[in-house]
Simulated scan of single mutants.
Amino acid sequence: MNIPALHLSHVELYVTDATAAAEAFVDGYGFQVYATAERTGPPGASRSLALRTGDIVLVVTQGLDAGHPATAYTDRHGDGIADIALTAVGARAAFADAVAREATVLAEPAEADGWVTAVLGAGFDDVRHTLVQRPAGAEAHGTPLPLPGFEPVAEPLPVPAEAPALTVLDHVAVSVRTGELAASTAYYERVFGYHAVYEELMVQGKEAMDSKAVRSPTGDITFTVLAPSPAHEAGHIGDFLERHGTGGVHHLAFATEDIVETVARLDKRGTVFLSTPEAYYDALAVRVDLNRHSVGELRAFGILADEDHAGQLFQIFTRTVHPKRTLFYEIIERIGADTFGGGNVRALYDAVQSEKAEHEATVTATKAGPENAR
């Protein structure tokens, strides 16, 4: 298929307070604000800040009146990811090609000040894809401005030497409703020429989820799409769908080249991560022959390790601070691995079950008498 090349431009979050959201990324993850926008007129007034670290660009947008779509989005979901924007050398041609492949159209191509933009629906509920064609010279301090209307800040503060070294957006993790996984991933395969890189039914106890990952032809965008299995309990994916109200993005995975050092720096900045049972590390050395980072280093920070046919990966997930507990982040280091830590899901489940069994045994022994609890 001769599909126009589309690269990742940025991820836009709709938020209730753009300044507070930007400060959370700056203070917690080491992002820098490099451009801002105050916009009025259709589709409503808004305030946006563009942030970057490494090659990761995020935009946080706050609706300032009832007409802006960010207002309705945050009323429904709270803060969340609304747009995964894509750059195109020729946005009109890319739009026409996507429409010919049955893409959902949300806004026809429009041109202003040398910019061309258009908006397509995504493969999951009310997330969208803005196509962006930038004019020559649309850069701020070496990083392209994300959208028309943005102005560069005077001069970003220098990056501290101890800033977390986050490099690229490794993948976007998405939850969809039961039975919608095939249609969601097929949309990307048909419209944008994505190809499947991973597929698995993950069963843990009474819970299960279907998963499939699809990757763009350019290789810089990967969606891991998850759905509750109809034959099992919905589990945490079902919890997300209930709290969020629809399918959508539940986490972004930021890549790093040294996860131990990066997590240590994030920890000093106050980023809080999910804890990992001690039993997980007791079994880790048997499960994975680590080629980087010791079990002790991983245990100290709660970092997980897994491997596949291509290599190893290390990952950790932040504890969500979202009021609805529907958005969090992942830090990931890959040493050749091409999958997404499926082995960790099983290992964590086994570790939790092991600790639960040990706790229950201790409680039972204590009730039976102190001499049995020793």
Rank of each mutant, 00 (worst) to 15 (best):
H68E: 05
G67F: 09
T74R: 00
A21W: 09
L49Q: 12
R47L: 14
L58T: 06
G28N: 02
A22F: 08
R52M: 08
A66V: 14
G44W: 01
Y73I: 09
A20M: 08
A66K: 08
A22W: 10
H77P: 05
D55Q: 12
Q62Y: 11
R76C: 12
P69A: 03
A72M: 06
T36Y: 10
S46I: 14
T36W: 10
T61E: 13
G67N: 15
T74P: 02
Y34V: 08
V33F: 03
V57F: 05
R52I: 11
D27S: 15
V26R: 11
A24V: 06
R76Q: 13
G67C: 10
G63H: 07
G78E: 09
Y29E: 12
T74H: 02
A21E: 02
V59C: 07
Y73L: 05
A20S: 11
V59K: 00
A66L: 12
G30A: 08
T61Q: 10
A20L: 11
I56H: 04
H77G: 04
Q32T: 14
L64S: 03
A35E: 00
G67S: 15
Q62G: 06
V57T: 15
P42C: 03
T40M: 07
V26A: 09
G41D: 07
Y73D: 01
L58P: 03
E23P: 10
T16K: 10
A21N: 00
P69W: 01
L49A: 12
Y14K: 00
G63A: 04
L58C: 08
S46Q: 07
F25P: 05
V15M: 00
V33C: 06
S46G: 02
R47G: 01
T40P: 03
L64C: 01
L49N: 06
A50R: 00
T19N: 13
A21D: 02
S48H: 01
T71H: 09
V33T: 12
R52Y: 13
V59W: 04
L49D: 03
D17E: 05
Y73F: 15
T19F: 15
E23T: 15
A70M: 08
S48T: 09
A24R: 13
A21K: 00
A24N: 10
G30P: 00
A50M: 02
D75N: 14
P42S: 12
H68N: 04
T61L: 09
G30C: 11
T74D: 01
R76F: 15
D75C: 07
V26E: 15
G67W: 08
T16G: 15
A45G: 11
A35R: 00
T16Q: 15
